[in-house]
Structure formats: structure tokens, C-alpha cells
Design a protein around this nucleic acid. Structure first.
Lengths: 246, 246
DNA sequence: GCAGCGGAAAGCGTATACAATGAGTGGCAT
DNA sequence: ATGCCACTCATTGTATACGCTTTCCGCTGC
């Protein structure tokens, strides 16, 4: 493999690697952030995977400074964990965190449904249905990675329709973390969201039936959570007394 | 004023400013973060105030690198705004953002009340009452800064009792942003929260009456929001046609 | 043979230096 | 006299250099 750099516009093409020559430094960073974020959400980087600064810096063709900035952002969104002198690794959510995240989704996503039902437009519905279709196709084609990302994107898009940017951004973060939770506690085989559900949900929303949508979302999320196999902390600080006193 | 550095343990005391000598770099950063965050929440730094990296670096006795890290964290919490080549400034919330934040608080804080009522212990109640007392004292003494911070801290602490760390952290951030909103849209004279309210709320909670607490919290938040004078966007991109065509 | 210790290497934390960009000001031309 | 342009200053963005901590591996002693 010859090409070591990943994101378009690598600096080795600007004639000698002059430091700050690129006109679009900010967009570049954003693209790299998306790259890493996507890789985590799609489970191409698994929980616990170490993310060395040097390696990332080399792969993306920027210096460690930029990588550190991105890593910090990911840490604040709790997609990566930053341990003081050990560097960054993909977060491995605990069982407690998983419960908190799904409780939070239950509260916020369900609470948003009435407003979404009130505000949803025909274009919104169309866009959502297309996402549901693509998700189903990905699932049928065995592309779990794509399906997971599309599912999170569906929930995120839904939240944005409410018009409340603060809550929508929060839901997006919760969905990202949910992807991580699925990676740790999900059973291979069946994915969290049944894409059939997503289609039905859009149906309730366009008919303006907020209460019905709320109840459906609630069941939908409960179903996802129930599909997890949460075997509490099987290797994190194993309880030796428990194990050997039996 | 001779002493230019603020946080304890300034590096000029270690004999010449050797770079990484300090043993507790992380705690130092945390302290600086708290310093700036508090200054913003207490309105000692007003919305729109510019935060130059050099100045902060000199004040706190660390280099710009560390300041940038802290500024980024504050930016992700939306307490400061980072404009690409212009540096950092204290965020000036728009009217829309204010509405979003209070809607979000309405949903999350109210939604948390039943669980809080179920879990609250005697010590929790005691601690909350003490905070309410201190807040009232600060208010009576005319120390608006302290009162504002205590009020935000009260709401944050309340949320943590629910046991859901994710939602509690979210509420804390919403409260921080609320402080900012009060700074812009609040009327001088009467502060957002009537401290009397906080005492009453604790009463409902310890009696296990979650529904009552929920309703009270809802009214409480509505009262705060109603006390704002949201004159939508009076200088941000003024509509010249509107103004001069009359 | 195993455990404890010492050295070397790898990787993170911080500071500093340099380059680029944006804003403000002064001069020049019309 | 006024409007436009160029220059300079101030400030951020990025990279790199250096020190410190941690970890891993080999060695020695028991």
C-alpha cells in the first residue's frame, strides 16, 4: 500500500509540504473528524482500540497538534476516552452508561415526537423514507457498518425536525454513543433498529399523530435496549472473591 | 497590581520556568478551566467579551497551547464562540437559542423530577437546602454573581440525584448557558430564580411527590423564561429595508 | 528457575517558533 | 478633499522540538 494519506487534498501535493499552505485548514480538520467519527460509529474501530497520535498524524498528513484537537473533541462527545499519560482509545461504554444513554433517549426522543409531528413537512418525510430505504438495503446487503450509521442518522435527522437545535445535537450525540453500545453489548445477527419500524414511524408522524408516534418511539427504543445482552462488566476489575469463593 | 498570575502553583516559583516540570498539569488545567467558566457564569465576563489567547496565557502562567485546549472545551459547551481567524469571545446567545435552551430544560429537568423524588435521600435534601439558603443570603447581600452561580449549581445538583450521569451533565450545561442568557436578556433587579422556589421544591421532593415537583419545576422554569425580555435580535444584522423604508 | 531491578525506547504533554490572515492606518492619486 | 490601495501590526493556526512518564525487555541475583 503506497498511499498513506487518506483525506483528499494531502499536503504532499503542494510542492514540498509547506506547513500552513492549504487554504482550507478548517474544512480539512472537519473532514478528518468525520472520518474518525464515522470509523468509530461504523465499528471499523472497535471499543478499546488505541488511537496513537503519531499514527493518526501520519495517516491524515497533519501534525500531532491537529490530531490532538480532534481527539479532544471526540473525547468530549465521549466517543473516545483520553487517559492521562496513556493516550486515546475508543470508549468502551459501561453497562451503567448504556442504561443512562437509553433512558436519556427515551426521555428526549419521545418527548420530541409531538413537536416533530406538528412540524414535519412533505420533504422531511420524503427524506426520512429514503434514509429508511437505504438503511434496509444496506442491512439486506449485509453491510452492517452502513446500516448502523444510517440508523443513527435517521434518529438524528428526526430530532432536527423539532426545530430545537440544542436537543437535536444532544440526540445526535446519544445516537453516536448508542452505536458504541451496540458494538459492545449488541448481538451479532440482528441490528438494533428494525428498519420496518422507521418507516412506520414516519407514517404516524406525517398523519400528525404525535401521541401515537411517541408511544411507537418508546417501544422502538425499548426493543433496541432489550436486544442488548448486558452482562455487567465481565472483565473490568473482575471480582476475584466472587469467582473463587463459589 | 503586582501579581499577574491567578491560579495557585504558578510556574515562576519552580526556578526559571522549566517547561513540563509541574507534577499536576492536569489539575492545573482543570482549575483554569473552572476559573474561566465561573467568570463567565457569574457575569464577570460579559457576552461578547473577547478572550485573547496571549492575555489568558500570561494571566494563568501557561502557554497558549494549554489555553487553546481550554478554550476549545468551553466552545464545545457553547460558553465561548470560536470564530475562525478572530479568536474566542464569550458567547452571546440568540433569542432562538434562548428558547431552545429553556424548552430543553423544561423537557429534561421536569422529566427527571419523578426519578429524583424516588431517589432523594436525607443528606441530598440537606445539601440542597443549604445551597438554597446560601443562594438567598447572596441575593440579599446583593452579590448577584454568587447567587447566579449557586442557582445553576442547585439545578445541576438536583439533576445528579436522578442517577443518570448523561442527563445530569446535559442539565449542567443547560444551566451554564442559562446564565449566559440571563446576562443578555435578563432584567437587572430581579434574578431568574426566586430562591423561595428552590426551598419549596425540595419540600415536594422529600415528600416523594414527584408529580407535584414536576409541575412546580415546570412553573418555575416558565417563570424564569417569562422574566426575560427577549427583544429579538436588536443589533445582529438589522433589517435595513425595514428601518429605512418606513 | 523465578523474581526483582535497571536501562532503553516509545509516546504523551508543553512550550516555542514561524507563517498566514485579517484589521487598521497612512499615503497617494485623482 | 476624498476615496482607494498598500503596508504594518496584531493575533491566530500549525508544526516542531524537547522533557517527562510509562512500559517493556533483558539482566542479574537469589
Amino acid at each position: 500500500m503506497n498511499q498513506r494519506q487518506v483525506v483528499a487534498g494531502d499536503k504532499s501535493s503542494d510542492g514540498g509540504g509547506r506547513p500552513g499552505k492549504n487554504g482550507d485548514g478548517a474544512e480539512r480538520h472537519e473532514a478528518i473528524y468525520q472520518s474518525i467519527s464515522d470509523a468509530i460509529i461504523e465499528h471499523r474501530l472497535k471499543p478499546g482500540a488505541r488511537l496513537r497520535e503519531d499514527a493518526l498524524a501520519e495517516v491524515f498528513g497533519i501534525s500531532r497538534t491537529g490530531i490532538r484537537k480532534i481527539l479532544q473533541r471526540l473525547a468530549l462527545e465521549q466517543l473516545v476516552t483520553l487517559t492521562p499519560r496513556r493516550g486515546a482509545s475508543v470508549t468502551r461504554p459501561t453497562a451503567d452508561e448504556a442504561k443512562d444513554v437509553f433512558d436519556a433517549r427515551q426521555m428526549v426522543e419521545c418527548g420530541l415526537m409531538p413537536e416533530v409531528a406538528r412540524r414535519i413537512t412533505a420533504e422531511d418525510a420524503q427524506s426520512l423514507r429514503e434514509m429508511a430505504v437505504r438503511e434496509r438495503e444496506a442491512l439486506r446487503a449485509g453491510e452492517q457498518s452502513a446500516a448502523i450509521k444510517l440508523s443513527a442518522a435517521f434518529h438524528g435527522r428526526l430530532a432536527w425536525i423539532s426545530g430545537n437545535a440544542t436537543l437535536a445535537a444532544f440526540v445526535e450525540r446519544l445516537c453516536s454513543r448508542s452505536s458504541l453500545i451496540l458494538a459492545v453489548y449488541g448481538n451479532a445477527g440482528h441490528l438494533g433498529c428494525e428498519s420496518h419500524d422507521h418507516d412506520d414511524l414516519v407514517g404516524y408522524l406525517v398523519s400528525g399523530n404525535g401521541e401515537r408516534a411517541l408511544a411507537f418511539m418508546s417501544r422502538h427504543l425499548k426493543a433496541i435496549e432489550a436486544s442488548l445482552s448486558i452482562h455487567a462488566e465481565e472483565d473490568e476489575a473482575p471480582d476475584l472473591f466472587e469467582i473463587f469463593s463459589g
